[in-house]
Design a protein around this nucleic acid. Structure first.
Ligand SMILES: [Zn+2]
Ligand SMILES: [Zn+2]
Ligand SMILES: [Zn+2]
Ligand SMILES: [Zn+2]
Lengths: 165, 165
DNA sequence: ATGTAAATGTTATAACATAACAGTAATGAA
DNA sequence: TTCATTACTGTTATGTTATAACATTTACAT
């Protein structure tokens, strides 16, 4: 039973306690990895934290440069391996239209997200809608297509950027 | 009034007269560009033909190498400029999850496509569904988000690859 | 003919991602 | 504990996708 009804949208301007987002995400990741019997190593955890640095999708090379700053020279495979792991475990999502990555707040649920991405500030909010999921799956199935993955990204202007102070 | 009800799906195995697809697409492009007062130059038309070479999304560098074969050395900007033009005019779509481009069979209609992309053969079929479009737009609007563009890509197995001969 | 804007050519480089192989750390069995 | 096995990480090189910047040519209107 999914439980995304009260998803807490965090657009850029929504001044929230983001430290809390990060702590919650890391805790969830630790529990999830433990229950799955996979290893959330230091490197993976640190890169997950860097992705969660904000609600803006972050490029692999942004992560790389932050990591290099704090840990000395680091090479791309280090980052991509960790990102691949995190994607596999559902701890982050990849935003295809940005070649960037963003933390998932519902890693325990098997889901495909719908991303609302602001063209002005670049923030991305993940939302869910059973009806949309279902309608898309039905449409594909009716055409004889067997769906496996799904990418749904809506670009536009987020509430905060529509009403700047 | 949109008119996609009888969309002719072309998955890979659907052995159809593809020459006809290309001719139709080029003719439509010429008419559309004329009516819009933009120039479908030789280079742009040729690159549109190369994208329409099949129903498989094609990478920019694939186009580039074909073009180089027939016209001598060509540089990336030549291809990307033409692709950008064709995207602006709605003559092709970009498949974000593949970094590739595919011809649009309904360029005159203002639309966002739903792409069914086969993980086995790589073919892509563009379909449309008013209900899906509407549901997504409503969802976004209800959250205070003002949508501008949309990417919807479903990966899976196409009918032809489910029942190989 | 001539000025202007649009389109194209050309060179270089940025941005994103993976292959291949060597070394190290964790884990479990003998 | 030792050893073998596997998972993880380090490192170098390279592949793939995309754009910046500026020179030249072409189309078009005056
Ligand atoms: Zn937050
Ligand atoms: Zn998610
Ligand atoms: Zn065809
Ligand atoms: Zn289309």
């Amino acid at each position: 039973m999914k439980n995304f009804d009260t998803v807490s949208l965090s657009f850029c301007g929504g001044s929230h306690d983001h430290g809390r987002c990060v702590i919650t995400a890391i805790k969830a990741a630790e529990e999830l990895c433990h229950s799955k019997g996979v290893r959330l190593t230091d490197a993976r955890k640190r890169i997950l934290e860097l992705v969660w640095d904000s609600h803006h999708p972050v490029g692999a090379y942004d992560v790389l440069s932050k990591l290099s700053q704090e840990s000395g020279k680091t090479a791309p495979p280090t980052v991509y391996r960790a990102l691949d792991f995190l994607l596999e475990q559902g701890l982050i999502h990849r935003i295809e239209s940005l070649n960037a990555y963003v933390g998932c707040a519902h890693p325990a649920e098997d889901h495909a997200g719908l991303f609302l991405i602001c063209n002005k500030c670049g923030c991305a909010a993940e939302v869910h809608d059973e009806t949309i999921d279902q309608t898309i799956l039905t449409k594909a199935s009716n055409l004889g297509f067997r769906p496996e993955q799904r990418t749904l990204e809506v670009r536009g202007i987020c509430p905060d950027c529509q009403n700047p102070q």
